[in-house]
Design a protein around this nucleic acid. Structure first.
Lengths: 341, 341
DNA sequence: ATTAGCACTCGGGTGCTTAGAGTGCTAACA
DNA sequence: TGTTAGCACTCTAAGCACCCGAGTGCTAAT
């Protein structure tokens, strides 16, 4: 059922005011502060209807109204007036991204930091799904007689170190040769292609096969790992600045989610539909989120490839205007930085 | 002034009991639970004296006694009965260190994780001061015409990626040559030695000098950086399991310190005397620590070289017996692992 | 030196009251 | 038919008086 214009306006007012003041919104407050042309009694009837429809709730009979999860979702998708960042804020974003933007790992870190700083909430991100990535170069460095460091460089310029065992009897020259061989073989290939590869080692030095298998294992570990480097968090302590987390139990619940990489990864990857801005609310089907907490996330792409999902996690009563503005702007700059790489 | 044996015993009882129960300790409780041979009145006199000496405080006239910072320090250095870890716990430590112990970064991570898990508190660590480290190998990988990835491998097997600019007109072969040249020059050298180095470039390709300068810059960035990789934290959320952090302000203060790498680094590096186990208490000269919080740390060495400072941060009312036992055992295993590398 | 006894203090919990905010409902009005 | 003023009702939060119990310090006796 479509809401009347006045209901929409009132709902917007309630959400705006509640986000701003954290105080349940009363009919009187609405008519005095925002709608002087109608009386509180009229607003009361409307509020009552909106409550009936599931958009508002009351803490107790004699309290004002508070938005429901449903209301927040509608607010972000429909009602909210989009905010523009100030020049100062935009400059700040640019300034941060200018520093050490040469390494994708740093770009990633910077993005999370900027989002957290500007929004004032805890921010999280997952890096691009490595599966779409392609190998650029593999290089071995022998350490001890039976160990080598494997450096993996990929198109996305992610890189990772890993160790493999090598046969003791292999000479440095042979290792070099194996390296060159594997490099030629794997270059420009994606992970799947490499896994499917069949190679005939019959006529070469037997150690090559060992190395080949070990390298594949290292690659598997790299590409499939739900690893630290894939998840980034910043501003965990920001949560405490917000009046919503007053009792220890809520903070506890929040920190448990935020410090658990597994949970966060699950939530962030969960049904990322094609929507540009995604809002998930703890009380609303997303049980892994802390109660009454929201996750606002956006997935960025360059030339059709996902380059990461970035988000903000905080109270449902969150400054969505600012958060969405920050996510959109950071996304724009991020995409432009990565596009011309 | 030296305390009488009975005073020591009573102080120990107070600290033990308070750590255990979190309830201010009364004279009656002491005489009934721990010292049936003396009456509560006697204990009362002793408690009064200990308070006079600065070891105990009262929250209000009719409450039991609580240990002061001074008392905790004395407790750890003198009074505490050292605990032994159970076989299960020791096995757990060994088990964790067996996984992926090939990379020093992982050993580092594992140590912090083990300490946090076993002690039940937030744990922090700083990696070895890189200054004492020596270069093992430097390798360039050209990316675009004017960029190269520099991989730095050091004796401590730390490694780090960095990008440098290279002159466009330089050919791949020339880059290779430059790489080999720099490698020979820097190998086995410490950071200071490299910085002091004077090289004559007059008779060689002009681009070499550019590269040389850029590499030095990259090394400087690597060796001197107060960087993420140097500081490690685990179990931030553990703090909430402890009854001491009941009000939001204390949690706030705690998290602010724990999420601020700068503050933590400062505290951890601050006057690390030769003591094996170091106790710093927030209310006692260490203003950077949260109020009524303690940091227990130990610095580990292999063959005279510092290999890191590990610690636990939590309430002053901390289970020092367990924490010290964990730190000592992890230290022992850590040193043995790194010794035979 | 130790102890029993007692007066004193303070915090925390309970029960009561009151003020105020907000609602829902109804009857009157445009 | 939608809007409004008025009123009764409900619930919360804050203040206050009260008491209980735990713990201490002090003193006088052993």
């Amino acid at each position: 059922m479509e809401l009347s214009d006045r209901k929409k306006k009132i709902l917007q007012i309630v959400v705006d005011d509640y986000i701003d003041t954290a105080v349940p919104v009363s009919s009187k407050a609405i008519s005095e502060k925002y709608m002087q042309n109608v009386s509180s009694a009229t607003i009361r009837a409307e509020l009552s209807a909106l409550e009936e429809l599931g958009y508002l709730t009351q803490l107790h009979t004699s309290s004002g109204r508070v938005p429901s999860a449903e209301a927040y979702k509608l607010y972000v998708s429909d009602l909210m007036v989009k905010e523009h960042l100030s020049k100062k804020e935009l400059d700040y974003i640019k300034e941060i991204f200018l520093q050490k933007a040469d390494n994708i790992e740093n770009v990633f870190k910077n993005a999370v930091k900027v989002i957290s700083e500007l929004s004032g909430y805890t921010s999280v991100a997952i890096s691009p799904t490595a599966v779409e990535d392609k190998l650029k170069e593999i290089r071995f460095f022998r350490f001890r007689e039976d160990k080598a460091l494997v450096l993996i460089v990929t198109e996305l310029k992610l890189l990772k170190d890993n160790y493999i065992d090598i046969p003791k009897e292999m000479t440095d020259a042979q290792l070099e040769e194996a390296n060159a061989f594997i490099n030629k073989l794997f270059k420009e290939k994606s992970f799947e292609e490499i896994c499917d590869m069949e190679v005939d080692f019959n006529d070469s030095f037997s150690g090559y096969k060992t190395i080949f298998v070990n390298v594949i294992d290292a690659l598997k570990a790299y590409f499939s790992a739900k690893e630290d480097s894939k998840l980034m968090i910043d501003g965990q302590d920001k949560i405490l600045r917000h009046a919503d987390y007053l009792d220890v139990d809520r903070i506890k619940e929040f920190l448990e989610v935020v410090t658990s990489k597994d949970k966060l990864l699950d939530i962030l990857t969960e049904d990322n539909r094609a929507l540009k801005i995604n809002v998930k609310i703890g009380s609303d089907g997303y049980e892994k989120l802390p109660k009454d907490s929201s996750l606002v996330s956006a997935t960025y792409t360059v030339a059709g490839k996902k380059i990461g999902t970035y988000g903000v996690i905080g109270p449902s009563r969150m400054d969505y205007q600012k958060v969405v503005a920050v996510l959109e702007n950071v996304g724009r700059i991020l995409e432009s930085i990565l596009a011309d790489k």
